[in-house]
Nucleic acid binder design. Sequence first.
RNA 1: GCUGGUGUGGCGGAACUGGUAGACGCAGUGGACUCAAAAUCCACCGGUCGCAAGGCCGUGGGGGUUCGAUUCCCUCCACCAGCACCA
Length: 864
Amino acid sequence: MNETYNPAEIEAKWQERWEREQVFRAPDRPDGEKFYVLEMFPYPSGDLHMGHVRNYSIGDVMSRFYRMNGRQVLHPMGFDSFGLPAENAAVKDGVPPQIRTPKNIERVRAQMKALGFDYDWSREIATHTPEYYRWNQWFFLRMWERGIVYRRQAAVNWCPKDLTVLANEQVFDGRCWRCDTLVEQKSIPEWAFRITRYAQSLLDDLALLKEWPDRITTMQEHWIGRSEGCELDFSLVNAAGQPTGQTVRVFTTRPDTTFGCTFVVLAPEHPLVNQITTPEQRADVIAFVARMKDMTREERLQEGGVKEGVPTGAYAINPFTGEKIPVWLANFVLAGYGAGAVMSVPAHDQRDYEFARKYGLPIRVVIQPVGELPADQAWTGPGTMVASGEFTGLSNDEGKFRMIDAAEQGGFGKRSIQWHLRDWGFSRQRYWGTPIPVIHCEGCGPVPVPDDQLPVLLPNITAFKSVGDAPLGRVPEFVNAPCPKCGQPARREVETMDTFVDSAWYYARFISPRDDKHPFDVEAARQWLPIDLYIGGPEHAVMHLLYFRFWHKVMREMGLVFTPEPAAKLLTQGMVVAPAYRSPSSGKWWSREELKDGRDPETGEEVIVTIEKMSKSKRNGVDPLAMLQRYGADTLRLFCLFATPPEKDVEWSEHGVEGAHRFIQRVWRLAYRNLELARGQPFTPVDHASLTGAARDFNARLHQAIDRVTTCIAGQQQYNTAIAACMELTNEAYALFPESRGRETITGPERALLVNYFDVVTRLLAPMAPHLCEEIWAALGRDALVCVAPWPKADPAALVKSEVTYAVQVNGKLRGEIRVSADASRERIEQAALAEPAALRHREGKEIKRVIVVPNRLVNIVVG
RNA sequence: GCUGGUGUGGCGGAACUGGUAGACGCAGUGGACUCAAAAUCCACCGGUCGCAAGGCCGUGGGGGUUCGAUUCCCUCCACCAGCACCA
């Protein structure tokens, strides 16, 4: 230990020793209480950003904390290394992904090591390697056998910039989740996972996720979107009322309002549109359908809720009233939901109401609320059924069930549940992903590649162009293959898998990452899973986290895992944000350095300052490597943890970093200055009862700090307050052992307290600032590493207070304080409070009505 | 519009189960050390009235329950996030 704190030197030293001694290596199977902590693995883009540093720092605290608490810890790391950015970069600069990716992984891994994270690197995986993706293919085949994989022709979300299909979850506000481009609709064949088969269990099991943030489970609940109701068939008739033999099926959650249904509306894409449109309406209908088709889904929904429609000229029979009602088309009816058709009840549905008012369609009230019907809008609440034939007089709740029963008996309807969740279309028209193990044969159709031919290797493409078809189709050696069934020449599937497939099960691969016979060791997985703590950003609330749960349920059915859910606890950490500067006229982003006196350097106009997530495009990023060089890993980590609780966004602050750095140096200086006194001394239990004065207070603080830090980390996961407790303790140590105090005066129990302070503070801080603590720990003469030292335990005797401070209030207002011994009787406390001079002043001349004594807290004297 | 969340000093944030609001850090002010500066150490640091002792106000606004409310209830406001014509 040197006089000056030199992070570069000590951090490299300890990282090297940790690696040499393999201290973070997890056993194949845990032989005690286990703790599996996992951070969402990164896409290796080349350099870590601050968000990663924060995410991984949190995981590292938990991992190190539980290791010191005697758990068998599994804390692995890998790379989500397939994906578009590498491929898009290749189009730009010609460096193919298979060259770029391993280089990037090396850089990122080195950066992670420089930050001192305690990963078990022997378990590293990278999803772009055949050793990994062959198991994606293996799962694909198993899921095919189970009917979970299928091929469909569907209207898909197409990102024209990334040139690929996107699943529903991957579209935000009509834009691509990755590049923010407006998504188009396109009809092409694709592969899909039947995730909807698991909709009910994905929904039900949210209840098991008690340690997931509510907002994440709520978002999933909404996304899965279960809606209960019934389907009803409406027979079609012509204008003269003669049956055409066709029926249109609608879905409704409000069968109780059917007597008020005065028209039926189809989606413009509804398959019946062509057949039922009358000649008189044909021109209007064709124009309307064409106009809707030209609009993106986004535009169609965007129009501020303007309802538009056109009559088809056809009519339907309301199955309950027998009445002839018109059939319309409207923009607000979606082909993809329910039956693509609705029965419109304008009196009791706001959309239908607006539509009916606009086009002069009849509005018929069939549910009477307790009070008045609202004016100028639909009544969508509960009530009594009126004008509803035999159901009149029932509550609408009961009517709902009776009418479904009637419809089922009449053969024109049935109970039905609709879901917002769609199947997961996972084929991607790109190169850098897992090849889909299928061969298309003219005679046999799509044929799965047999297991013994796995992996289907990704061919080595080196020339990239930006075109809208799958690049693998341009590699004849890859495409041409014999049909596994009939042996005739056939063509391989040229699309690749969505990279969310890779991340759907990687947590299980970490259990036995080198297994070349199975995706993972089932017995080891039984012991290691579920993940005890999963940490990542909330942006994956309904993409990754839904697929990940789905895949786990499939694996459970396959007998590979044994818990209903993959992760017991989820911690969603906030973003790292910083001020960003934008010109109001050009919309151009500037870095802080580029600004001239806070103004746009080109136009001189005042820039708009907003707090934004750190990003290259907004030019407000801070490079972790530069910070690492300037302050060291411990400071950087400590800042990320101290600034704010983990779920909140943390605003980057250079001042804040300096504060963290200052604290580290404060601990360092105190240690260095007292090294001679403390070296070679073991932790010495001190008899608290024998201590007096400042020494006694200090010992109490020391043990309180142990308590606080432990509950802050294990309980509420508030690392900011854990660190604050260490700072307070250090401030106390400075007060008791100031620099001015001669070393020779620190003897006996005081010397033991000094030693114990270092002994405890290095262990308490070790999960957060591990290198600093190793260095001081070693300087104290400890042989073993602090990262495997046992977590300190508070001495209960030191936590018991002999004297307690009571606040004295008069009518709830603080007036003074008294100190009484901890075992004082209620009467003694009351007496002392009544004698307190300040309180006395405030109640003189008034009658005491009541005295409230709250043990260990306060005395409130109520006067009148 | 719906759902969820948040609102505390100049700033980031603390506060157990209703019990002394503002821990800890940042910024700021003053002092010690220094030839000087930096670094460091110490002290002060919500507003307001007051020379002071001390008083009054104060956790988005208003109301309520309570001896006592940042915490519980009602209501309003602001901001953030997600979903959004889902029948």
